[in-house]
Amino acid sequence: MSKTWLKHLLRTAAFLLALLVAVGLVGEYLKPHSNRYLTGYTAGGILGEDFDTIDVLVLGDSNAAQGIAPMEWYHQAGITGYTYGVGWFSVYNAYYRLRRIYDEQSPKVVVLGTAIIYSKKGNETRVQNAVGDIMDELFPLVRFHDNWKYLTPKNLLEEHDYTWRDINKGFTPLTGVHSYGGGSYMDDKGVAPIDPLVQLYLRRIVELCAQHDTKLVFVTVPCGNAWNMARHNGTAAFAAENGIPYVDYNLDHNLKAIGFDWQTDTPDSGDHLNVKGAWKVSQAMGHYLAANYALPDHRGEPGYQDWDADLAEYLANRQLQQASVETALAAAM
């Protein structure tokens, strides 16, 4: 290699390094000032929790955010959990967010909401989706670039405050009722293949969990419009291949066991769950977790006073939500 070329190579490398530093710094600067606004729903609240207090972490999309209420577990058995649910979440996002969460938490169980295995946003190809999501994760600037709009002279030099906590622990309660009338959706006998890139990142999640001595579980929240037997079979095959327990609440026997009713338990005709559906699924999950994993009861323990206070507030809100959903149900019938 000639001297000139070496010079150009070094210069290019130095430029790219300077560029990376600049992109990194601006990305950090543009992150939301509060962890409340880090993601859609309230997933960012996990960063406000005390270190190493979450025993069960749920990773998923809107189905998880609106369908899994971890405070039900705390109420039942003192299990601390958090639902990290983000709209249009992907397996790629899940992998990088899990890495980030491991910096602060040491969950004993990670529950992966399987809807993200097959979801795809927009008209992009799966590869474009993957590259876009991975870039989002590697370069915070890409993800938070639009936050320049919220800069004001007042907050220009304000420090980030990531202490906000969510009493619902990532769960977003919906109290509307709009029944699902699509009929049976779990009849297909085929197997929906999992995209190879998705498989790659699922395996990375499996490895990451193993490295942190975390048990991984696949869970599918009932979803009448975006789930089917072929997807179940594809997910079950991957789970079996990798020794991952899998619970699909869409299966008839599971729906029956938890008393799920598509007439009353969905706010949007089968896409998501309202609180009635979420409580049923969450309580069943609580029983499953308590039965299958050695998860401590933290109620009343020192260091968990905040959780006890959160539970009291959660239960008070739950009563209001119960009333609200009953009113919506009466109106819908």
Binding site: A18, L19, V23, L30, N123, L141, H145, D146
Partner: peptide, 26 residues
């Protein structure tokens, strides 16, 4: 030169109409 190039990249990355809040055309 480098300041101009890096500034240009940051300009596109920060003020680009991409991501969840936009509907870029093909």
């Amino acid at each position: 030169r480098w300041a101009a190039y890096i500034g240009g990249v940051l300009l596109v990355l920060v003020f680009g109409a991409y991501g969840d809040h936009y509907d870029p055309a093909a």
